[in-house]
Computed example of a mutant assay.
Amino acid sequence: MATPHGPARYRLDVPENYGGTLLVLGHGAGGDVDAPDLVAVRAEALARGVAVALVTQPYRVAGRRAPAPAAQLDAAWLAVVARLRKNLEFSALVVGGRSSGARVACRTAREAGAARILALAFPLHPPGKPDRSRADELLTGVPTLVLNGDRDAFGVPAASPGVQVQVLPGETHALSKNPAALAAAAAGFVTGDGAASL
């Protein structure tokens, strides 16, 4: 589909037991929507009656690995959300993603009209540069669940009002060791039933 910064792609799956919640997920900076954590969360959400859209940013559709500037990522994301709003009726919108995708979801959540934000492997700072914190991006006023590994080189955000943080033991930034546990922790939050404990 067209966006202000080139064609984006999304895959929308609506389960037979759809209950009115739409989860929109974005990928990491150099990755794609087939990352283990995104795949696991998608499967668990669909099993619980949540519609799921996996969004591929224009720079990845064009075959580039280096991400576009933040303003372009945000504009393309909002264009996809607007299209989804026309294509599917939903009572609750949950936005999220992994790493860079989590940042995009946070920055645009209020404009998108999101009820909740799911941030997977939120990159608190560039590796080895804790002084360059991105913690302020989590302060959206929208209820947020952050799932990060305790061995994440990008750091682990601290909990704050409206921001719940769960740390997954033994996980790195990839969040690939136990996707099932990650998905179970995310699913309750996505459906509005609260996050599962790890």
Rank of each mutant, 00 (worst) to 15 (best):
A2R: 15
T3V: 04
P4C: 03
P4N: 05
G6Q: 04
R9H: 13
Y10W: 12
R11I: 06
V14H: 12
V14I: 15
N17S: 15
N17H: 11
N17Q: 11
G20Q: 12
L23Q: 00
V24L: 02
G26S: 14
H27C: 08
G28S: 14
G30A: 11
D32Q: 08
V33G: 00
D34Y: 06
L38E: 04
V39W: 00
A40W: 13
R42Q: 14
A43C: 01
A43W: 03
E44M: 13
A45K: 03
A45Y: 08
A47V: 05
G49F: 11
A51H: 01
A51D: 00
V52S: 04
L54G: 00
L54V: 03
L54H: 10
Y59P: 02
R60E: 02
A62S: 14
G63W: 10
R65E: 05
R65W: 07
A66Q: 15
A66W: 09
A66P: 00
P67S: 07
P69Q: 09
A71F: 14
A75Y: 10
V80N: 05
A82R: 12
R83L: 09
R83P: 02
K86W: 06
K86V: 14
N87P: 03
L88A: 11
F90P: 09
A92R: 10
L93H: 08
V95N: 02
R98A: 14
S99T: 11
S99G: 03
G101E: 04
A102M: 02
A102I: 01
V104N: 03
V104F: 03
R107C: 00
T108S: 15
A109C: 09
A109H: 04
E111A: 15
A112R: 09
G113N: 12
G113C: 09
A114S: 05
R116F: 06
R116K: 14
L118E: 09
F122P: 00
F122M: 05
P123F: 08
L124Y: 06
H125D: 01
H125W: 14
G128W: 09
K129L: 13
S133A: 10
R134C: 03
R134E: 11
R134P: 08
A135E: 15
D136H: 14
V142D: 00
L145Q: 12
L145S: 10
D150R: 06
D150L: 05
D150S: 09
D152F: 02
A153H: 04
F154I: 01
G155S: 09
A158E: 13
S160P: 00
S160L: 12
S160Q: 14
S160D: 12
S160F: 01
G162S: 10
V163D: 07
V163M: 07
Q166D: 00
Q166Y: 02
H173D: 08
H173V: 10
A174Y: 06
L175Q: 03
S176C: 09
A181S: 08
A183P: 09
A184W: 08
A185P: 04
A186Q: 11
V190N: 07
G194R: 02
A195Y: 12
A195V: 14
A195P: 15
A196Q: 14
S197N: 10
L198E: 07
